[in-house]
Design a protein around this nucleic acid. Structure first.
Lengths: 392, 392
DNA sequence: CAACCGATGGCAACTGGTTGCCACTCGTTC
DNA sequence: GAACGAGTGGCAACCAGTTGCCATCGGTTG
């Protein structure tokens, strides 16, 4: 988070695009530096000539420490620096295949769930000398396949953060490049996931301690693995703690979905709710508030993921925090490990690969409270005249 | 926004990373596909041999429509498709320099200000057949320079979304590749900015219509161009509409900065506030609420940018919406224009380049209201016992 | 003194496309 | 019948590095 945009000086309130921003009327005087902008960067051949050595020696001076006499290497490096030599990554990549690029494919860059994942991955990649290529596929399987097609030949490895593709499509990709999947478990491809089960367990314990005896799970999309997993975990935890568990949904995991869920929930209430994710929880919060319920006095609400914004909705959301930054960073580490050990990929294995489970953490904020006595709210309840809800 | 993460099946609650995820105990039976994973993709040479033509003909069949006899070309394409030939982008890029890559350097991927910008840029890039490389520089000038070093030789053009570097550093980069800057105006490099002046004007008019007579501007970072511009525009608009304008700050444009600003503001109040950006505004909102002020009854609050979350804080924030998606998309278009017209870059020009100003839009939500009568709030006011603010 | 060896540097092939230029064919025109 | 020109295809150079292999050299060992 932190700093923000710079801005433009608008002393010239000119609106609209320049028709041809680069049109340059042929001037008489200032064409002195005719071939100025054409200066291309020097190559190892130029450096070699300047040093009186062979190009291969220059190449080795940079990429094979020790292979060249120390003094010679030093001289070459000095001359190269003076000439402003920079090795051309494309030329290096062609024979070696080492592009120093990694790709992360995210389902939706505008979903705050991914921000910290990208940040974590980028950090780890940069630290390891790699550049990260972020591709947004806007929740489309076709776009994902195309992005993969485009980037696969370019990169040394790929990280699929929440792929929408089938397992077999993922395997096809993994056959070509080292691959790691996030938030999804595959037995033949390294996986990194949040420990949803434990996170849910913590959430249920928290609600139980507050005296709640029935929990409603507001489900996300049916196709989501996480959704199934969270619901199962909730049920198991509730069983152990002797609490009733119910389920409504599925709903789209968006604010709109949450608002829709609020109406369904109003028909079959409970004092506590766990939502599939924060976006849904926030929508639910808005919907319930509009229906006259007070949170957390009437309904305690728990979300999942701890995305940006879950701390400044009102009340701030209690949520099971996914270790987003670590998720991205750790997944990238797994990818780097694969790059370092050039073992045959996707060999049929005796025992399935075990996923890495990263711990979730329950962040208790303002949306959960001890169970109060029952109170009327909702469409059928008498209109409230409390301190004005904002006209939204 | 929309869909969200998939999830892992946690029937096997195994924690931690696999030591060596790819270690494969040498099995006796399944090594039949010995050179299976080693199959490299076919090249134009393979295709040429299969077709009985020269490699150059294959190359032209793909990249020079019409240059090759239609039947021959068709045959080549068919055979290539059968063999699964895909042109190697690296090999193509080496002689031509056409990598089909563009880079966008953002100051902070976790800042919601950038989400839609990235999305817009990525959309435009993909549509034009380019792949977008997103680099996050975490607000660090050094990291930005390094990211630039790393990506410049790889890409065909760069988009600097809110660069922290000096103008001259940007010019150095622009000398090497077509460049466009966002949220910053340079006279010799194409710029795309939000029309802050008009946006601010609309905000001031809105507050004036609500009866406010004094507006406090809560400033962002001093180094920010946008900040200076917004303050100037506010002052000018206020002057014309005969309203008083005041200014406090600078503050860090974060939620924390906003909370700090709340305390300063409490000392010298006014009924209306315009904040440098939404993050600051949201922090301010939280800070003021904690101090006992009611928003919008006691203080009307306007933010800038309309970032993710500004609609679900309480009350929802009235804000000057930057056309984020367009900003990214349009800037990318400008970049593509430069790529298409290979004119000399950065030639000294008679007349300065005019920036493209994209219109902002005032989004009126719940944080602004008609000016009410003065009411006591703040640390000195008698403690309020209103409907419980959540324990945050 | 011969054989050997490690250190060092150069040669040339290789990565996989692109493209300028030339050669050939065939139909047209003077 | 010669000259011309468009349509096609091939040759070979080129992009800028990397790397296997060999030659040379000085020093060491038997």
């Amino acid at each position: 988070m932190a700093d923000d945009e710079d801005g433009g000086d608008a002393t010239e309130p000119v609106v609209g695009a320049d028709g041809d921003p680069l049109a340059d009327e042929p001037g008489p005087a200032d064409d002195d530096a005719l071939e100025g902008p054409r200066r291309s960067t020097p190559t190892i051949y130029d450096v070699a000539a300047a040093c009186g050595v062979a190009p291969s020696t220059v190449s080795r001076a940079f990429s094979r420490p020790g292979r060249v006499n120390a003094e010679t290497a030093e001289r070459i490096r000095r001359v190269a620096a003076e000439m402003g030599y920079r090795t051309n990554p494309l030329a290096r990549a062609l024979p070696t295949g080492r592009t120093s690029l990694l790709a992360v494919i995210v389902a939706d860059v505008t979903n705050p769930f991914f921000f910290e994942i990208i940040r974590g991955a980028e950090e780890a990649a940069t630290a390891a000398g790699y550049t990260l290529l972020v591709a947004d596929v806007q929740e489309s399987v076709d776009a994902e396949r195309e992005a993969l097609d485009r980037t696969l030949p370019l990169v040394e490895g790929i990280m699929l953060a929440t792929s929408r593709m089938s397992d077999s499509s993922i395997r096809v990709a993994a056959k070509q490049r080292p691959t790691v999947v996030l938030n999804r478990i595959m037995t033949d491809i390294p996986s990194v996931v949040t420990d949803n089960a434990r996170g849910m367990r913590r959430a249920v314990e928290h609600l139980a301690e507050l005296g709640h005896t029935t929990i409603t799970y507001v489900a996300g999309p049916e196709a989501s693995w996480a959704d199934g997993m969270r619901w199962r975990s909730l049920r198991e935890a509730a069983y152990e703690l002797e609490i009733r568990a119910r389920r409504i949904g599925p709903f789209s995991p968006t604010q709109a979905g949450g608002i829709a869920a609020a109406h369904v929930f109003a028909e079959q209430r409970s004092s506590a709710v766990v939502a599939y994710n924060d976006l849904l929880a926030i929508g639910l919060m808005r919907g319930l508030t509009r229906l006259g319920a007070r949170i957390p006095q009437d309904v305690s609400l728990v979300g999942f993921d701890n995305i940006f914004g879950s701390d400044f909705c009102t009340p701030p959301l209690t949520t099971v925090a996914a270790p987003l930054r670590n998720l991205g960073g750790y997944a990238l580490t797994v990818l780097l490990d694969q790059l370092r050990t050039p073992s045959p990929r996707l060999q049929p294995r005796r025992e399935p690969l075990r996923p890495a489970l990263l711990p979730a953490q329950l962040v208790v904020r303002g949306s959960t409270a001890p169970r109060g006595r029952r109170r009327a709210w909702g469409p059928s309840a008498p209109a409230r005249t409390g301190p004005g809800q904002s006209p939204d």
